[in-house]
Design a protein around this nucleic acid. Sequence first.
DNA 1: TCTGGGGTCCTAGGACCC
DNA 2: TCTGGGGTCCTAGGACCC
Length: 428
Amino acid sequence: MNSRFALIDVNNFYVSCERAFNPKLENQPLVVLSNNDGCAVARSNEVKTLGVKMATPWFQLKDLAKKHHIVALSSNYTLYGDMSDRVMTILRDFSPNVEVYSIDECFLNLNGLNSLWPSATQMGQTMRQRIHQWLGLPVCVGFGASKTLAKLANHIAKKQPVFNGVCDLGLLSSEQIDALLSNIAVREVWGVGSRIGLKLEAAGIKTVQALRNTPTSWLRSKFGVVMERTGNELNGISCLALEEVTPPRKQIISSRSFGQLVYTLPELSESVASYVSSAAEKLRGQQSTCDAIKIFVHTNPFREKDPQYSNSITIPLPNASSDTRLLIRAALFGLERIYQPGFAYKKTGVMLIGISSIVMSQGSLFKEYGADEKSIKLMGVMDQLNRRYGRNTVSVFSAGNQKSWIMRRKIMSPCYTTKWHDVPVAYA
DNA sequence: TCTGGGGTCCTAGGACCC
DNA sequence: TCTGGGGTCCTAGGACCC
């Protein structure tokens, strides 16, 4: 069991959650729709086989749906979040080192677990069995020497039935791996998206195997350090560490498209206020404050014949805060400044920025981090905190004659706006 | 011969992920 | 008619400071 990382991923997560609670949906072609039932954000295998892509607008699917009896459900994120927690809880029994990567995926570090399992494959099969038995969810498991390889192994486990849902790349000979990876498109690699995928293909690098054999120096010069890292990871050189502690969010967005076009300031204000309230809740949930809020509005870019308008404004706050009422006041102040009558609005939202961990007193900092004023120099502790929470998290300021520490990001943005728009027209 | 250099902060834009 | 909602990181370039 040499592979150091495992990636466990629930198949078609939202769809599988719905099926777990309604077995009649088993074997039926099924999609789960986004907000306002706009797009298909999850597809069952039956629907994927029909060639339906992620985020396809539902209205474009209606004919296909009629023909193949596709069932469409509105999304239920509370349910999915709860099921996700249960999956992660089960997986924590397999390793103490878990990184919850997304709602339906997690990485495990397997260092030191060699003696507990005869093979990684057996461990993976046990995970599958347990999650299926306890929650009714299907998962696939990939093992590899790096996170990128574990991801790739998971992809193979999903696509190739011979692996029966568990693939350990560490078990294969290098000839077997070469053959396997020569048949997988380069875009399947974690970190290769559509843009870079196109460029790689244009350079003749079409398969994962070809990417693996590309000198990382070339990757760096063409695409930057991120791709260089991907190249190394594919060759079994682990560059990405397991991130067990979820760092606090650096920005929090709350936005939504309207079901119907919206024209007036009061209607927009109502939505903005409710988005601020949910964003502020998340902010307090991670014990943070923000020192600016950005508000944006959009017309519908798909209605190309309509006059288009998009604008945003950033309102700095006098003091870092997470107070809903204060944030709403700032947001509505900003909204009034970017609102233009005469446009049909499709989307609005807010973004909390300049997020910092909550202000701590010197005493509580010492207490929490075990720092002793005499033994640890100020800079040392600051470095430690900055490493933990990101650059510029900590700064020092003086209040009266007492030196205090404050954990915050220094952002003092001026209030500015960005926009694109056509000439407004009168509307009924 | 000879032009300032080094560092930080900030933004926009582009790429990626689920 | 109807087209998701979140996030992250990197890089280049300008402003500004000493």
